[in-house]
Design a protein around this nucleic acid. Structure first.
Lengths: 244, 244
DNA sequence: TCTCTGCGTATAACGCTGTTATTGCCTATA
DNA sequence: TATAGGCAATAACAGCGTTATACGCAGAGA
């Protein structure tokens, strides 16, 4: 007795169970990793963080719980991979702003464009954004210092845009770009989080607040108020500006 | 058979178990609610959100899991109570700013003082703050619209401070105070969250960014740069200002 | 004083979670 | 062909929130 050898399956009649057509298809096997990641991203966007569980993912892709641990070590490890891919998408958006505008574009407008894609990403992938920048843990995963430094490195783009604004005579030439870019980062993050949490109430839309923040940022940095407003409107994209 | 009547306790020798000195002491019984809340707040601040569980709380206060459900309905219900008390502490801080300064105080300084207590609260109770304003769920609890409106109502204080700034000739008289206060809200929230998440890196401290944000806010609102800097320094408290 | 009604509680269980030790298959190597 | 090793399925463990059940005790009514 007690022979675990033939752990008789309760229902091996399930057809394509294991020893049927492709018992260990290499493509399907290697695809488990990919399928788990895709399913995790799908569940995250469609049903929220609370629905993300190992058992649910492995059931969806037809694997056992071990798949999570052989491929990712743990659930936080899987989430980490999802976050890495999400961050790659974020960086892609940010990096595409300046090439789309051309090297001679209005730098204040470029700054506004960077902030626009920032807000767009936060809106498009709120769960990923919340984990990456909001510090909200997900299935036990929390950011490491390395993650944070990677995330903080994208402020290089608005940093350089600020320098270009100063060089173009729009901003004060003695501006502390390092401080200013951190102020801008805080503003963008705060707006994104508040909008996501439903805290932008009353007769004001997040885009109104965004336009106001950017205009005031440029004005405080030394730009002419009217010119700043025009550049911001242009950078935020046609029709995205507030009524005024 | 099957008499669940005398479900013999495994170890009734535990002394003050039930039928000993105070079997149903009304004070202790009514105190279970309070003790659960205090223990929850303690665990939250000392060990973080991940350590907050019903079983752990009831064990700490010597009750059974049912205590959570008779007193709070559910774990989210208990967390809700913790959050309500946390928000009361936040409001107390905010409301104390103007009385401490007097009705004739520099309104820009008062605005800075409000932002200071905001940041202080976020730093003092990061977990509570993250749930209240960051939208980060805790043990299944999430903010309701009613909670958000209650939270958003405290922006009344900076709103009125902005109006006073305009009345005192420091800010433009045609300033859109509703928009401006939302911009300020976003800035304060973003800074608090970024600082908490460890995203204020490099040679800049959160207080530097705070001072910069407030000064720029006042300048964009129409205040004189030097005067704004002085008021902000004063409002942030002695010694809290940046080096420059 | 006795009885009854009802609230609050303890127990035990259900289904869920992440995680892991064990076992065995299958593939790729010597 | 024989062998070594990675990958996966099973089943289990501890913990989670939640709940049905039964019971003890307190206060109200007779």
């Amino acid at each position: 007795m007690m022979l675990p050898v033939s752990t008789d399956h309760p229902e091996p009649a399930s057809g394509e169970r294991r020893n049927s057509a492709t018992p260990r298809d290499p493509a399907a096997s290697a695809g488990i990793r990919r399928r788990l990641l895709d399913e995790a991203a799908r569940v995250l966007v469609e049903e929220g963080p609370a629905a993300l569980s190992a058992r649910r993912l492995v059931k969806a892709v037809g694997a056992s719980t071990m798949a999570v641990y052989t491929h990712f070590g743990s659930m936080p490890g899987l989430v980490r991979e999802v976050m890495r891919e999400g961050f790659a998408r974020f960086r892609t958006r940010v990096e595409a702003v300046r090439p789309a505008l051309g090297p001679d574009a209005d730098p204040v407008s470029e700054l506004a464009g960077l902030c626009r894609v920032y807000q767009e990403f936060a809106r498009a992938e709120p769960e990923v954004y919340a984990v990456l920048f909001g510090g909200s843990p997900l299935a036990g995963f929390e950011l490491t210092d390395e993650d944070r430094q990677m995330g903080a490195r994208v402020i290089r783009f608005p940093f350089e845009a600020i320098l270009r604004c100063a060089a173009a005579g729009r901003f004060r030439t003695d501006i502390d770009a390092g401080l200013a870019v951190r102020q801008l980062f805080a503003q963008m993050h705060g707006l994104a989080q508040l909008a996501r949490a439903g805290y932008i109430l009353g007769d004001y839309r997040p885009d109104d607040v965004l336009a106001g923040l950017l205009r005031d940022f440029a004005v405080a940095a030394g730009d002419d108020p009217d010119r700043a407003a025009r550049s911001v409107r242009s950078g935020l994209g046609q029709g995205a500006g507030p009524g005024a």
